[in-house]
Design a binder for these strands. Structure first.
Lengths: 124, 124
DNA sequence: GTGTAACTTTACGTTAACGTAAACGTAAGT
DNA sequence: ACTTACGTTTACGTTAACGTAAAGTTACAC
Protein backbone atom coordinates (compact mmCIF):
# COMPACT_ATOMS: atom_id res chain seq x y z
CA UNK A 1 0.00 0.00 0.00
CA UNK A 2 1.12 3.49 -0.79
CA UNK A 3 1.12 5.68 2.27
CA UNK A 4 -2.12 7.34 3.22
CA UNK A 5 -3.27 10.00 5.66
CA UNK A 6 -6.38 10.54 7.69
CA UNK A 7 -8.12 13.90 7.73
CA UNK A 8 -6.95 14.69 11.24
CA UNK A 9 -3.35 13.75 10.43
CA UNK A 10 -3.27 16.29 7.65
CA UNK A 11 -5.12 18.78 9.81
CA UNK A 12 -2.48 18.51 12.52
CA UNK A 13 0.44 18.61 10.12
CA UNK A 14 -0.72 21.77 8.38
CA UNK A 15 -2.44 23.35 11.35
CA UNK A 16 -5.86 23.61 9.80
CA UNK A 17 -9.16 22.15 10.96
CA UNK A 18 -10.73 19.03 9.44
CA UNK A 19 -13.65 21.27 8.61
CA UNK A 20 -11.43 23.39 6.38
CA UNK A 21 -10.17 20.30 4.56
CA UNK A 22 -13.70 19.05 4.00
CA UNK A 23 -14.57 22.49 2.72
CA UNK A 24 -11.75 22.36 0.19
CA UNK A 25 -13.07 19.03 -1.00
CA UNK A 26 -16.59 20.43 -1.21
CA UNK A 27 -15.21 23.14 -3.45
CA UNK A 28 -13.55 20.56 -5.65
CA UNK A 29 -9.97 21.40 -4.73
CA UNK A 30 -9.42 18.00 -3.18
CA UNK A 31 -10.90 14.61 -4.03
CA UNK A 32 -9.52 12.08 -1.57
CA UNK A 33 -10.25 8.35 -1.78
CA UNK A 34 -12.73 6.65 0.50
CA UNK A 35 -12.67 3.69 2.78
CA UNK A 36 -16.40 3.26 3.31
CA UNK A 37 -17.37 6.79 4.17
CA UNK A 38 -14.00 7.70 5.65
CA UNK A 39 -11.71 9.92 3.60
CA UNK A 40 -8.30 8.54 2.69
CA UNK A 41 -5.73 11.05 1.53
CA UNK A 42 -2.88 10.10 -0.80
CA UNK A 43 0.49 11.83 -0.98
CA UNK A 44 -0.84 13.60 -4.08
CA UNK A 45 -3.76 14.91 -2.04
CA UNK A 46 -1.29 16.08 0.55
CA UNK A 47 0.60 18.05 -2.08
CA UNK A 48 -2.63 19.61 -3.28
CA UNK A 49 -3.43 20.72 0.24
CA UNK A 50 0.02 22.17 0.57
CA UNK A 51 -0.52 24.15 -2.62
CA UNK A 52 -3.83 25.47 -1.35
CA UNK A 53 -2.29 26.69 1.87
CA UNK A 54 0.71 28.16 0.13
CA UNK A 55 -1.70 30.11 -2.01
CA UNK A 56 -3.55 31.34 1.03
CA UNK A 57 -0.37 32.66 2.59
CA UNK A 58 0.21 34.98 -0.32
CA UNK A 59 -3.37 36.11 -0.55
CA UNK A 60 -4.77 33.79 -3.21
CA UNK A 61 -8.43 32.91 -3.12
CA UNK A 62 -9.40 29.26 -3.30
CA UNK A 63 -10.33 29.81 -6.93
CA UNK A 64 -6.86 31.09 -7.68
CA UNK A 65 -5.36 28.14 -5.86
CA UNK A 66 -7.52 25.89 -7.99
CA UNK A 67 -5.89 27.38 -11.07
CA UNK A 68 -2.47 26.80 -9.60
CA UNK A 69 -3.32 23.20 -8.80
CA UNK A 70 -4.57 22.57 -12.31
CA UNK A 71 -1.28 23.83 -13.64
CA UNK A 72 0.41 21.04 -11.77
CA UNK A 73 -1.22 18.35 -13.86
CA UNK A 74 -0.86 18.87 -17.59
CA UNK A 75 -1.65 15.12 -17.72
CA UNK A 76 -3.70 14.29 -20.77
CA UNK A 77 -3.67 17.66 -22.46
CA UNK A 78 -3.99 18.29 -26.15
CA UNK A 79 -2.20 21.03 -28.01
CA UNK A 80 -4.81 23.70 -27.48
CA UNK A 81 -5.01 22.96 -23.76
CA UNK A 82 -1.25 23.10 -23.46
CA UNK A 83 -1.09 26.46 -25.18
CA UNK A 84 -3.84 27.82 -22.98
CA UNK A 85 -1.98 26.55 -19.94
CA UNK A 86 1.21 28.25 -21.08
CA UNK A 87 -0.65 31.55 -21.26
CA UNK A 88 -2.07 31.07 -17.79
CA UNK A 89 1.37 30.33 -16.45
CA UNK A 90 2.64 33.54 -17.97
CA UNK A 91 -0.17 35.53 -16.34
CA UNK A 92 0.43 34.03 -12.93
CA UNK A 93 4.13 34.66 -13.26
CA UNK A 94 3.50 38.34 -13.92
CA UNK A 95 1.17 38.54 -10.95
CA UNK A 96 3.67 36.85 -8.65
CA UNK A 97 6.49 39.12 -9.78
CA UNK A 98 4.25 42.09 -9.08
CA UNK A 99 3.53 40.83 -5.58
CA UNK A 100 7.23 40.43 -4.97
CA UNK A 101 7.70 44.07 -5.92
CA UNK A 102 5.02 45.20 -3.50
CA UNK A 103 6.61 43.17 -0.76
CA UNK A 104 10.03 44.63 -1.50
CA UNK A 105 8.58 48.14 -1.36
CA UNK A 106 7.05 47.38 2.01
CA UNK A 107 10.31 45.97 3.27
CA UNK A 108 12.15 49.12 2.23
CA UNK A 109 9.56 51.27 3.96
CA UNK A 110 9.81 49.21 7.12
CA UNK A 111 13.55 49.68 7.07
CA UNK A 112 13.09 53.43 6.88
CA UNK A 113 10.69 53.49 9.79
CA UNK A 114 13.03 51.29 11.75
CA UNK A 115 15.83 53.78 11.21
CA UNK A 116 13.59 56.62 12.36
CA UNK A 117 12.72 54.68 15.49
CA UNK A 118 16.33 53.94 16.27
CA UNK A 119 17.47 57.53 15.94
CA UNK A 120 14.48 58.65 17.99
CA UNK A 121 15.48 56.19 20.68
CA UNK A 122 19.05 57.37 20.48
CA UNK A 123 17.96 60.94 21.10
CA UNK A 124 16.48 60.01 24.48
CA UNK B 1 -3.67 75.56 -0.13
CA UNK B 2 -2.01 72.18 -0.15
CA UNK B 3 -3.38 69.94 -2.88
CA UNK B 4 -6.48 67.95 -2.13
CA UNK B 5 -8.44 65.15 -3.77
CA UNK B 6 -12.09 64.27 -3.99
CA UNK B 7 -13.31 60.78 -3.30
CA UNK B 8 -13.96 60.02 -6.94
CA UNK B 9 -10.55 61.32 -7.98
CA UNK B 10 -8.87 58.84 -5.68
CA UNK B 11 -11.32 56.15 -6.71
CA UNK B 12 -10.41 56.62 -10.37
CA UNK B 13 -6.70 56.84 -9.75
CA UNK B 14 -6.54 53.61 -7.74
CA UNK B 15 -9.37 51.81 -9.51
CA UNK B 16 -11.53 51.27 -6.46
CA UNK B 17 -15.08 52.40 -5.79
CA UNK B 18 -15.96 55.39 -3.61
CA UNK B 19 -17.88 52.89 -1.49
CA UNK B 20 -14.64 51.06 -0.73
CA UNK B 21 -12.93 54.27 0.31
CA UNK B 22 -15.83 55.20 2.58
CA UNK B 23 -15.63 51.73 4.03
CA UNK B 24 -11.95 52.16 4.83
CA UNK B 25 -12.79 55.38 6.62
CA UNK B 26 -15.60 53.65 8.49
CA UNK B 27 -13.04 51.13 9.68
CA UNK B 28 -10.75 53.89 10.83
CA UNK B 29 -8.04 53.38 8.23
CA UNK B 30 -8.65 56.79 6.71
CA UNK B 31 -9.80 60.03 8.28
CA UNK B 32 -10.07 62.65 5.54
CA UNK B 33 -10.94 66.27 6.20
CA UNK B 34 -14.37 67.70 5.49
CA UNK B 35 -15.72 70.61 3.56
CA UNK B 36 -19.24 70.68 4.95
CA UNK B 37 -20.17 67.05 4.59
CA UNK B 38 -17.91 66.44 1.62
CA UNK B 39 -14.73 64.49 2.20
CA UNK B 40 -11.45 66.19 1.34
CA UNK B 41 -8.42 63.96 1.00
CA UNK B 42 -4.89 65.21 1.62
CA UNK B 43 -1.73 63.80 0.04
CA UNK B 44 -1.18 61.98 3.34
CA UNK B 45 -4.60 60.36 2.98
CA UNK B 46 -3.66 59.36 -0.52
CA UNK B 47 -0.55 57.64 0.76
CA UNK B 48 -2.59 55.82 3.36
CA UNK B 49 -4.94 54.57 0.68
CA UNK B 50 -2.00 53.44 -1.37
CA UNK B 51 -0.70 51.48 1.60
CA UNK B 52 -4.07 49.83 2.13
CA UNK B 53 -4.26 48.70 -1.49
CA UNK B 54 -0.66 47.54 -1.51
CA UNK B 55 -1.49 45.43 1.50
CA UNK B 56 -4.51 43.96 -0.25
CA UNK B 57 -2.44 42.92 -3.23
CA UNK B 58 -0.25 40.73 -1.08
CA UNK B 59 -3.11 39.27 0.88
CA UNK B 60 -3.21 41.50 3.95
CA UNK B 61 -6.48 42.03 5.73
CA UNK B 62 -7.55 45.58 6.49
CA UNK B 63 -6.49 45.01 10.08
CA UNK B 64 -3.00 44.09 8.95
CA UNK B 65 -2.89 47.12 6.71
CA UNK B 66 -3.90 49.20 9.69
CA UNK B 67 -0.80 47.92 11.50
CA UNK B 68 1.35 48.80 8.53
CA UNK B 69 -0.09 52.29 8.38
CA UNK B 70 0.54 52.87 12.05
CA UNK B 71 4.15 51.95 11.50
CA UNK B 72 4.42 54.86 9.12
CA UNK B 73 3.81 57.41 11.81
CA UNK B 74 6.04 57.06 14.85
CA UNK B 75 5.06 60.67 15.49
CA UNK B 76 4.80 61.40 19.16
CA UNK B 77 6.01 58.09 20.49
CA UNK B 78 7.67 57.53 23.81
CA UNK B 79 10.42 55.01 24.42
CA UNK B 80 8.14 52.09 25.22
CA UNK B 81 6.02 52.72 22.14
CA UNK B 82 9.11 52.94 19.98
CA UNK B 83 10.43 49.64 21.27
CA UNK B 84 7.06 47.99 20.73
CA UNK B 85 7.01 49.36 17.21
CA UNK B 86 10.46 47.98 16.52
CA UNK B 87 9.26 44.53 17.53
CA UNK B 88 6.23 44.80 15.28
CA UNK B 89 8.44 45.82 12.41
CA UNK B 90 10.59 42.79 12.98
CA UNK B 91 7.54 40.51 12.94
CA UNK B 92 6.19 41.98 9.74
CA UNK B 93 9.58 41.71 8.14
CA UNK B 94 9.73 38.00 8.92
CA UNK B 95 6.25 37.51 7.55
CA UNK B 96 7.08 39.36 4.35
CA UNK B 97 10.27 37.41 3.83
CA UNK B 98 8.27 34.21 4.29
CA UNK B 99 5.76 35.33 1.67
CA UNK B 100 8.60 36.03 -0.72
CA UNK B 101 9.81 32.49 -0.24
CA UNK B 102 6.38 31.04 -0.99
CA UNK B 103 6.19 33.15 -4.11
CA UNK B 104 9.62 32.02 -5.24
CA UNK B 105 8.64 28.40 -4.70
CA UNK B 106 5.56 28.93 -6.82
CA UNK B 107 7.60 30.60 -9.51
CA UNK B 108 9.99 27.65 -9.63
CA UNK B 109 7.08 25.23 -9.86
CA UNK B 110 5.53 27.23 -12.66
CA UNK B 111 8.80 27.08 -14.53
CA UNK B 112 8.85 23.31 -14.23
CA UNK B 113 5.30 22.97 -15.51
CA UNK B 114 6.14 25.32 -18.34
CA UNK B 115 9.03 23.11 -19.35
CA UNK B 116 6.79 20.05 -19.26
CA UNK B 117 4.27 21.81 -21.47
CA UNK B 118 6.90 22.85 -23.96
CA UNK B 119 8.38 19.37 -24.35
CA UNK B 120 4.87 17.95 -24.60
CA UNK B 121 4.12 20.40 -27.37
CA UNK B 122 7.41 19.55 -29.06
CA UNK B 123 6.48 15.87 -29.12
CA UNK B 124 3.41 16.56 -31.21
C1' DG C 1 -21.58 -3.41 27.07
C1' DT C 2 -20.16 1.01 27.79
C1' DG C 3 -17.32 4.72 27.05
C1' DT C 4 -14.69 7.56 24.09
C1' DA C 5 -12.31 8.86 20.14
C1' DA C 6 -12.41 9.69 15.33
C1' DC C 7 -15.03 9.76 11.53
C1' DT C 8 -19.37 11.12 8.86
C1' DT C 9 -23.36 14.42 6.96
C1' DT C 10 -26.57 18.29 7.34
C1' DA C 11 -27.45 22.73 8.33
C1' DC C 12 -27.40 27.08 10.26
C1' DG C 13 -24.15 30.94 12.03
C1' DT C 14 -20.32 34.25 11.45
C1' DT C 15 -16.83 37.65 9.80
C1' DA C 16 -14.67 40.50 6.31
C1' DA C 17 -15.09 43.45 2.66
C1' DC C 18 -17.49 45.51 0.23
C1' DG C 19 -22.09 46.00 -3.42
C1' DT C 20 -26.37 48.03 -4.16
C1' DA C 21 -30.43 50.60 -3.59
C1' DA C 22 -32.99 54.37 -1.50
C1' DA C 23 -33.54 58.96 -0.41
C1' DC C 24 -31.59 63.23 -0.12
C1' DG C 25 -28.48 67.83 -0.68
C1' DT C 26 -25.68 70.93 -3.76
C1' DA C 27 -23.58 73.09 -7.55
C1' DA C 28 -23.02 73.73 -12.49
C1' DG C 29 -24.80 73.80 -17.27
C1' DT C 30 -28.77 74.99 -20.76
C1' DA D 1 -36.74 75.39 -13.89
C1' DC D 2 -34.78 71.13 -15.03
C1' DT D 3 -31.35 67.85 -15.75
C1' DT D 4 -26.82 66.02 -14.87
C1' DA D 5 -23.03 65.05 -11.99
C1' DC D 6 -21.20 64.57 -7.73
C1' DG D 7 -21.54 64.17 -3.00
C1' DT D 8 -23.86 62.43 1.47
C1' DT D 9 -26.09 58.81 5.00
C1' DT D 10 -28.66 54.64 6.16
C1' DA D 11 -29.52 50.13 5.58
C1' DC D 12 -30.01 45.78 3.77
C1' DG D 13 -27.72 42.20 0.46
C1' DT D 14 -23.83 39.26 -1.01
C1' DT D 15 -19.73 36.22 -1.37
C1' DA D 16 -15.86 33.66 0.52
C1' DA D 17 -14.18 30.81 3.84
C1' DC D 18 -14.89 28.63 7.08
C1' DG D 19 -17.00 27.79 12.52
C1' DT D 20 -20.14 25.37 15.22
C1' DA D 21 -23.72 22.50 16.74
C1' DA D 22 -26.59 18.39 16.07
C1' DA D 23 -27.19 13.74 15.21
C1' DG D 24 -25.42 9.56 13.81
C1' DT D 25 -21.85 5.50 12.60
C1' DT D 26 -17.72 2.65 13.41
C1' DA D 27 -13.84 0.79 16.00
C1' DC D 28 -11.21 0.08 19.74
C1' DA D 29 -10.34 0.01 25.13
C1' DC D 30 -11.81 -1.45 29.43
Amino acid sequence: MTDAYSISELAREFEVTPRAIRFYEEKGLLCPGRNGSTRVFSPADRVRLKLILRGKKIGFSLEESRDIIEMYEPETANTRQLESLLRKIQEKRIQLEQQKKEINTMLKDLKKTEAVCLTALDAQ
